[in-house]
Design a protein around this nucleic acid. Structure first.
Lengths: 328, 328
DNA sequence: CGAAATCATGAAATCGTTTTCATATTCAGA
DNA sequence: TCTGAATATGAAAACGATTTCATGATTTCG
């Protein structure tokens, strides 16, 4: 593999001149430019990435943390982020935290060792106070999740509103016995806010939430099915279920259907995200503008990297949208 | 940010000794080790990734090329690959080619500029003759796709068998008028082999394939719906459709159902992959052992990186499995 | 007892690129 | 005509880590 030294030798010039040509610096004659270009071509030379990174103190790489890439919500986020990153000449390192604090901490080392220029968190496992010190090593942008104390750009959705409009819809459809289904998110502000919105809508309607109508640990289609089995066992069952994901909602609808129940007659179900699955399964769902938040997060990330300024808190909050279908 | 020089100064030792301690080389007294560790801790020192990469000629990063991460087949592959890579201390760079030759070539530069140690191709857009020269820069492993001429490890599935067993199943269910639905893959061996298997099964049964029963350009749920609309317009319609993806199959089933057709009475549909969607939509499907091929591909990649040997052709071919549900 | 091997530590070189500083020449304006 | 700015090119330093080579001390074995 040729180095800049080889190119200089073949061109009969110094490495400095070759570097000037490569980087399009001024004050190089056209003749010298020609000599360098010919030598580069003949030697099939490309600059070494590691050397460049060391000298320029830049990696042109961004790490994106998602819990699991198989979750369509996160794969959609990453799809748009990678596209935006590639447009600007950045690579995207995929980091799956699997909802684990330790895994998240391990990946934070990427910033500390300067393996990436910045990182985007789409879910947050550790307390912000554990993450904040890493800002000394590079910029962090939070997307989808939220933190009151984070002095960084945050692009997120009004999840209180999301929880609220979804629940209000159920109430407007005539349901008075509403169950709540979610993952086990201890540090997730998304989950917290949705529940706040859910309870707010219930309170406004003078409705009560029973403890046994709360179903946790639901992330996937399989979890949705398990949730239905648990609901089925209740003597006093909810008429409708608010869920945090189309996949979970789909699992519930499928299991209910398999058990001979009619949706929404026997059980109304509302999902989140408006994935292709939602349309296929005729799910009422709260749509999130995934493409918008992904693009904005990546733009803010690249802007933070380039500006090299002290990060400041900046909130970009977007509304949610209810899509009504047959499941409610 | 502290450097090894700072640590050496604080410890009262040379950079060589500090490096020896960091890398656990022999012949350093316990006393000196203690001094270095204390200094590292006090300065909050971690080694700089760019400097290490340059000196060691290693990046500990692998690029994985997928057409689109939102396709559940590819997101599942990447999910497993990232997990395996992280276990061995490697980072995974996600590259979306979007089925474009130029995009694939752009990403191949990652290998040439030594930004990654190796790359895994899960789909191939360019001719292998265009890709092969990049082997000079680092190892390449092909996963899911196939190429006769590639002198690299390939982990793939018997797609001729997949096309065959799916089609044979339709025939065994009594269908004699079979349509074929696929994406527009010009250089995809997967698509080619499935069709070979499909035609083989037809031929064995003495059945004919009509040109107007061939539906192209289908990758997504939406494409599935469009495919159904096209099929509906035919005067002589197929009784069953072989598709290349559960999402396409689901779109077809959904559109058919919305049009009042009964599946499989009016139209039988078979999908591929056995995604959660397949169970939800009761699709008969050809299941692919995604986790196995993903894990094996990543293991072969890391083995290739570590061995630094000339790549040799190695085929790992796995069988497919038919899952029968209500759509056929 | 002496030579060879092992132990312990550090200076210099290395990896490959880019920038800084230096030197020489040419040009433009006062 | 002279001076300062612009132009053109190259050597050395820098980025930060790791390895190679060197030196001296200690231990081991024939």
């Amino acid at each position: 593999m040729a180095t800049i030294q080889d190119v200089a030798k073949l061109a009969g010039l110094s490495r400095t001149t070759v570097s000037r040509v490569i980087n399009e610096h001024p004050y190089v004659t056209e003749e010298k430019k020609r000599l360098v270009s010919n030598a580069m071509q003949e030697l099939n030379y490309v600059p070494n990435s590691s050397a460049r990174r060391l000298r320029r103190q830049q990696t042109e790489t961004i790490a994106v943390y998602v819990p699991r890439i198989t979750n369509p919500f996160f794969s959609h986020l990453v799809e748009v982020m990678e596209k935006e990153a590639a447009k600007k000449g950045y690579q995207l390192i995929l980091c799956q935290t699997r909802y684990k604090k330790e895994q998240e901490r391990n990946f934070l080392e990427l910033l500390k060792t300067k393996q990436v220029d910045g990182l985007i968190l789409t879910s947050i496992e550790n307390d912000w106070s554990e993450i904040e010190p890493y800002l000394a090593y590079g910029p962090i942008v939070v997307c989808n999740e939220y933190s009151d104390s984070a002095q960084v750009p945050l692009v997120f959705l009004d999840q209180i509103e999301g929880g609220y409009i979804g629940t209000k819809h159920l109430i407007e459809q005539g349901y008075t016995k509403l169950g709540y289904c979610t993952g086990d998110h201890k540090s997730s502000r998304v989950a917290h806010d949705r529940r706040v919105g859910f309870l707010k809508a219930l309170n406004e309607a003078g409705l009560q939430m029973k403890d046994e109508w709360y179903f946790g640990g639901a992330y996937s289609v399989q979890d949705g099915k398990r949730t239905f089995e648990n609901l089925k066992k209740l003597s006093d069952r909810p008429q409708a279920l608010f869920t945090g994901s189309d996949e979970v909602a789909a699992g519930i609808v499928k299991a209910a259907s398999d058990a001979g129940w009619k949706v929404p007659e026997h059980l109304a179900v509302i999902g989140f995200d408006n994935q292709p699955l939602a349309e296929l399964m005729e799910l009422t769902t709260v749509e999130q503008p995934i493409e918008t938040i992904a693009r904005q997060a990546m733009e803010l990330m690249i802007e933070s990297i380039k500006s090299k300024r002290t990060p400041v808190r900046k909130e970009v909050i977007l509304p949610l949208n209810l899509i009504q279908r047959s499941s409610t």
